[in-house]
C-alpha cells in the first residue's frame, strides 16, 4: 500500500514536471520566434546583399532588383523596378539613404526626380522595435522551407483580433534576412506576396552602384509632394481600433486638389492606415461607401461637409471604424 502511495506520488510529481516542461517549451518557442523576428529586422538593415524580388498584389506583379549595403552604419539601398510595362528600357530607380528616398522615374520625355521620406521597405519590413507587434500578434513556428535556394525558418504572425491581417514570414535560416512575406486574411488566403527569387550576399565595399544612371539626352525635373508637419488638430478620432496609434499627421497639397488635405497615419507596428480629411468644395462630388483594391481597403464618409477617406492594407472593419470615429472638435483639441 505504501509502495502504491509512493508510486502515485512519483506519478503526480512526474506529471507535474512534464507539464511544467511543456509550458516552458511553448514559452521558449514563442520567445525564440520573437528573437528570430528581431534578427530578421536587423539583418535587412545590417547585411550587404543583392537580389531580385517579385511583388504581387491583386492582379499586379512587379520584379525589382535590390542592392543593399551598410557601410559603417550608413545604409544605402538601390531598387530598380525591372518590369515597368510601357516604360521598358528605362527602369524606375529608387535610392534610399538614411531617412530619405529618392525616386528617379521616366515621365513622357522627361525624367522626374522625387524626394520622399524614408520608409521600411522590403526586406526591411519589420520594425526594429517589436514591442507594438507583440501586443497585437501571436507567433507560430512552422516547418522550414526553401526560398530562392536558401533554407528558411517560417514564422506566422497571427493577429489577436479582426482589426488586422496575418503575416507569414520566411527568414533566412543562416542570416535571418527576410526572404518572403505574405499578407493573409482571416481565411488564411494570400492577399499580397513579396519574395526573393534570387539572392546573394555581397563581399565588396564598392559603392559605385549608388548613383542614378544619368541619360544626358533627357531633361531632369524635380517633383516634390509638399507635406507639412501638423501640430495642432481640431480633428479627433474618438476610438481607434485596438493596437493602432497615431504615428504622424501632415497637411498635403495633392495634385488635382484645390485645398490642402489633412493626413493622419495610424500604425500597429506593421499594418498602417491613412485618414484623409478634405473640405468639400463647390462642385465636388462627396463620396460614400467602401471599396477593395488588391489588399487595400478604402472607406469614404462625409462628416460636417468634410470628405473623410480611410485607406489601408487592413481589414474592412478597421477602415470602417476609423471613418466612423472621426469628429470635429474645434475647442477641445488640446491634447
Amino acid at each position: 500500500m505504501l509502495q502504491f502511495k509512493n508510486a502515485l506520488r512519483f506519478c503526480i510529481l512526474g506529471f507535474g514536471v512534464f507539464s511544467l516542461s511543456i509550458f516552458s517549451i511553448s514559452c521558449i518557442a514563442a520567445d525564440d520566434a520573437w528573437l528570430a523576428l528581431q534578427k530578421t529586422a536587423y539583418a535587412a538593415r545590417e547585411l550587404n546583399y543583392q537580389g531580385v524580388f517579385v511583388y504581387q498584389n491583386g492582379k499586379q506583379s512587379r520584379s525589382v532588383q535590390i542592392t543593399h549595403m551598410n557601410n559603417n552604419g550608413q545604409e544605402m539601398t538601390r531598387n530598380l523596378v525591372l518590369d515597368n510595362g510601357a516604360q521598358a528600357g528605362q527602369p524606375r530607380e529608387v535610392y534610399s539613404q538614411g531617412n530619405d528616398i529618392l525616386i528617379v522615374r521616366p515621365k513622357n520625355e522627361k525624367m522626374v526626380i522625387e524626394k520622399r521620406r524614408g520608409q521600411n521597405l522590403f526586406p526591411a519590413m519589420l520594425p526594429t522595435d517589436l514591442q507594438s507587434l507583440k501586443a497585437s500578434y501571436n507567433t507560430r513556428v512552422l516547418a522550414t522551407e526553401m526560398i530562392a535556394g536558401r533554407g528558411a525558418q517560417v514564422i506566422e504572425l497571427i493577429p489577436n483580433d479582426t482589426f488586422r491581417y496575418g503575416y507569414k514570414i520566411w527568414a533566412d535560416a543562416e542570416f535571418g534576412l527576410l526572404l518572403k512575406m505574405t499578407l493573409l486574411d482571416s481565411k488564411k488566403q494570400t492577399l499580397e506576396q513579396i519574395e526573393f527569387t534570387q539572392l546573394s550576399m555581397l563581399n565588396s565595399q564598392d559603392a559605385n552602384w549608388f548613383q542614378p544612371k544619368i541619360d544626358v539626352k533627357k531633361n531632369y525635373v524635380t517633383e516634390d509632394v509638399s507635406a507639412v508637419n501638423h501640430v495642432d488638430t481640431s480633428w479627433i478620432v474618438a476610438e481607434l481600433p485596438t493596437g493602432y496609434v497615431k504615428v504622424d499627421h501632415v497637411t498635403l497639397n495633392l495634385p488635382g486638389k484645390t485645398t490642402p488635405v489633412d493626413q493622419m497615419i495610424f500604425s500597429d507596428g506593421i499594418a498602417s492606415v491613412s485618414l484623409f480629411i478634405e473640405p468639400i468644395t463647390k462642385g465636388m462630388h462627396p463620396k460614400m461607401g467602401h471599396m477593395l483594391i488588391g489588399s487595400t481597403n478604402i472607406c469614404a464618409n462625409v462628416i460636417d461637409s468634410y470628405q473623410i477617406t480611410v485607406v489601408g492594407e487592413v481589414p474592412e472593419a478597421t477602415v470602417m471604424q476609423i471613418a466612423k470615429a472621426v469628429t470635429f472638435k474645434k475647442q477641445t483639441a488640446l491634447k
Binding site: Y55, N57, Q60, R62, V64, N79, V81, N84, G85, Q87, R92, V94, I101, I103, R105, R116, R117, Q119, N120, L121, F122, M125, L126, P127, M181, L183, E192, I194, V225, A227, V247, D248, V250, L252, L254, P255, G256, K257, V261, Q263, I265, S267, I270, A271, S272, S274, F276, I293, T296, I298, T309, V311, G312, E313
Partner: peptide, 21 residues
C-alpha cells in the same frame, strides 16, 4: 491620389514605389 499618399507615408510599405509606377 489618396492611395499614393497613403503608400508613400505608411511606416512600412511592401513596395509603394512599385505600385506607384
Amino acid at each position: 491620389e489618396y492611395l499614393q499618399a497613403h503608400q508613400a507615408a505608411a511606416p512600412s510599405s511592401a513596395a509603394y514605389y512599385i505600385q506607384n509606377a
